[in-house]
Nucleic acid binder design. Structure first.
Lengths: 338, 338
DNA sequence: TTGTACGCGTTATCAC
DNA sequence: GTGATAACGCGTACAA
């Protein structure tokens, strides 16, 4: 970290440091020739402005913190790539942290990022997160925060959402059109809004087609593969077997599928499956899993844009919620072959 | 970013700023009582040291840059988690960049990280990277760099490697023990050392068992799923069909498997498959793919430790190469059922 | 043991 | 148009 500074250039050229500084920030008057001399000399000496001195005086870190629950699977990495793309172009540095689906770690991450004086945060909640006091405090202090996908309704911030309701509706309707009648729903974690929305879509699709949904068709579950396995075990033990299952997450669906296959059920002849989120492995398992694909990169880009707008906004800030759309990738796990 | 500073505390307590500073850096003499007063007052006021002021005066950024070729798939994310774990504990900030397997982006990332004055770098090369001049320059300037997995032999830095030779040997031998005789090898990208090592392991296993390997058994390929598909097409068209294939990467194996299945070959009866790297989906595809698992988290932790040692090292620095071991996960893609 | 004063590299506000 | 000089927040030699 032994860098050339503006002082070095000033000495070399017998000019004042302030003049050198001006050469780089063209908001000041400076003779074009001297500017040129300085710029070429700077390049020759390999000058690079010290970002920490700039951050110190500008009172802005130009750092954005990202908090996601997990790294494994393609969803979050792709969102991050999308967000980085936009943030880098706007001159921001990105600090990525991952909570490992653990509430405690999540809060520690936020704290770490605050210590590093991030100008803003992009967050997706862990499925453990129930207590949102820390976030309320954050928001009320005026820290720009954008939540995406895993959000909490009580937090009044900008949000980037997927239209979970609509796509759960479509996914369910797809099963109904395929003539499946007894459709179960494996829900997501109770604390997340997306769980409620996907459930609502599931129910409304039934309502539209005048199909009843007894409570026994709704199985509380979670996003891990093991949760799907557990849910499937429970269903099989109950001896109340559905002819189709719509899971709130791909891994849940895959876990459940595994168990059903193991118990001799044919897919999709005996039980059909539809998942949610287009996990990398969805198209590679046997049979390939029908799944709702989300616009991952676009989610990241949108979150970044909203955050930058809020940070650089001078007027009154009004939280915005942007809802993006996706597509249903229909594969053989849900296609009746009759 | 309106933080409490040591000045505020000084004013509040009628003390000098230096005294406040001393309370936090216990290398100076300070009366225990005043220290206590300061510390409690600081906590009360919510004081947090400004990291940029510290970085500025300490002439060290406490930032570590990580450059990886891709985010998708579990290998690199897991390495990063391992590295972060160690680096965070040592007080370092981690800046993660991803080259998307593109040489140009990779170099831009390195440049970006340099501008941010990282104290050191952890790098895994893209499979496009052939020109390593920029890295040679980096190293010769004394910047601490640790490469892992995708390394280049000409760079004299610390490295964390997987014992590609040994595990390629074991993987091949596993096929031989299963009584496969005509084994093809889909190699990795030509510029990477690991490609040579895996090839060497493949050849030596044959040598040990006195089996010949004609050149036609070696198919140059790459790490993408599509590369595997292409390689498989080439093999099928040549009508010189192997009874087993050892691919240098899981995705390559999966792509090839897909094509062979599509053409009516039964796996593993007609053609057996072994991959490398234990991709997340390896165990979920049909049939589950035998693969060499690498100690991902440990690779990250080790790289981080080596880097910290080099950065904080005062004496003469000697580059170290640490080679880690793995395990072969045997699944049905390579088990003769006879 | 505590206070004073300077420097880290930069930008901004003055003079000239 | 250019040059001093004071900040930004912190660490530290030196004086008290």
């Amino acid at each position: 970290m032994k860098h050339v500074t503006i002082k070095d250039i000033a000495k070399e050229l017998n000019l004042a440091v302030s003049t050198i500084s001006r050469a780089f920030n063209d908001k000041y008057d400076i003779r074009p020739e001297t500017k040129q001399t300085i710029l070429s000399k700077a390049k020759e000496m390999g000058y690079r402005p010290n970002p920490f001195a700039q951050k110190l005086i500008r009172q802005r870190s130009m750092n954005i913190g990202i908090v996601i629950p997990e790294f494994i699977g393609s969803f979050f990495p792709e969102v991050i790539i999308g967000a980085q793309e936009v943030l880098f172009k706007a001159g921001y540095q990105v600090l990525i942290t991952q909570s490992n689906e653990c509430y405690k770690t999540e809060i520690e991450n936020v704290e770490l990022l605050e210590q590093n004086m991030v100008d803003g945060l992009i967050i997706s909640l862990s499925h453990q997160t129930k207590n949102i006091d820390r976030y309320k405090e954050l928001v009320s202090r005026g820290t720009p925060v954008v939540f995406f996908n895993r959000v909490n309704d009580e937090l009044n911030t900008s949000k980037v959402l997927f239209d979970d309701y609509e796509w759960a509706f479509f996914a369910t309707e797809h099963l109904i059109y395929q003539n499946y009648k007894k459709i179960f729903h494996l829900t997501g974690p109770a604390n997340l809004s997306l769980t409620k929305n996907r459930l609502r879509g599931f129910l409304d699709a039934h309502k539209k087609h005048r199909l009843k949904v007894p409570d026994s068709h709704l199985i509380p579950s979670d996003f891990m593969l093991e949760d799907g396995e557990r849910a499937a075990m429970k269903i099989i033990e109950s001896e109340n077997i559905p002819d189709a299952i719509f899971a709130a997450g791909d891994l849940t669906a895959i876990g459940a599928m595994k168990i059903f296959k193991k118990h001799g059920y044919k897919i999709p002849e005996d039980v059909a499956f539809v998942g949610f989120s287009e996990h990398t492995i969805a198209q590679h398992i046997d049979p390939p899993l029908t799944s709702v694909a989300q616009p991952t990169f676009e989610i990241g880009r949108t979150a970044a844009k909203l955050l930058i707008a809020q940070i650089e906004n001078t007027g009154v800030f009004v939280p915005q919620t942007i809802t993006l759309s996706g597509q249903l990738n229909i594969r053989s796990s849900s296609m009746k072959l009759t």
